[in-house]
Amino acid sequence: MTGLDVLVPSSPEEAVAAYGDGDGVTVIAGGTIVLPEITYGRLRPSKAILLKDAGLAGITRDGSRVTIGATTPVVELTELPAPIGPCAANVADSEIRAQGTVGGNLCAGIGPEAPRGDLQGALLAVGATVRTGGSGGEKTQPLEEFLADREGKLLLDVSYDEPAAGAFASLDRPHTHDYTALAVSAARAEDGTTRLAVSGVAGHAVRLPSAEAKADNPQAAGEAAAGDATFADDALASAWYRGQTLPVLVRRALTQLQEA
């Protein structure tokens, strides 16, 4: 690891300055995804930033607005109302949840074996926005936009308005260390709007607009959802299986939401 530059910023401002435009920078928060990449030689960082002391951890509330710092461990989300809490509790095991962070989950790309980033779906369903630093300065944007283009951005925090009701429906995992093959999050905002999102699909988690349009009819919404997502074959499940499962999970999530 000759020429490796490791920075340990002690404030968000220092972290943003160290990150610069992000070119060639490896950001390490909990390290649960990055460390194996380094161990197995798939990633050879030349400049790394450890965010552990950057002051980016913690959950704050301002009225109904919830803000979660990027390095907040996943375990701290498990008691939040659905869909966030049940989704966070469905990530890995208790020890990994205590180390892995919300930011790592939102920044995770496709892994060698499966899509990662289970929390992306739950946070899309509550209409979250993210605050980032990096090239072009500080920016606040919807999570959808961030997921579509994460290059050159250092995630600082994610925030959302607490929904009136939420629901989470997931395929069971064969083992705590498997990523979730497919999960649907649903949330009804205070203004009555229902948002639906699915994780475990190709690329990153996505909203399900066709299903949202029929949200008051869980069966019809499930059937409509098929056109909103594309699936990949991987070690966890085939694209075909995911396609067959999505309508079921949408129906379950919306039924839960109606009963919530």
Binding site: I28, T32, L35, I96, A98, Q99
Partner: peptide, 13 residues
Amino acid sequence: GEARRACLLAVAA
């Protein structure tokens, strides 16, 4: 005092 995976922690962390 907290159980952690030694393989997932950079020593600098």
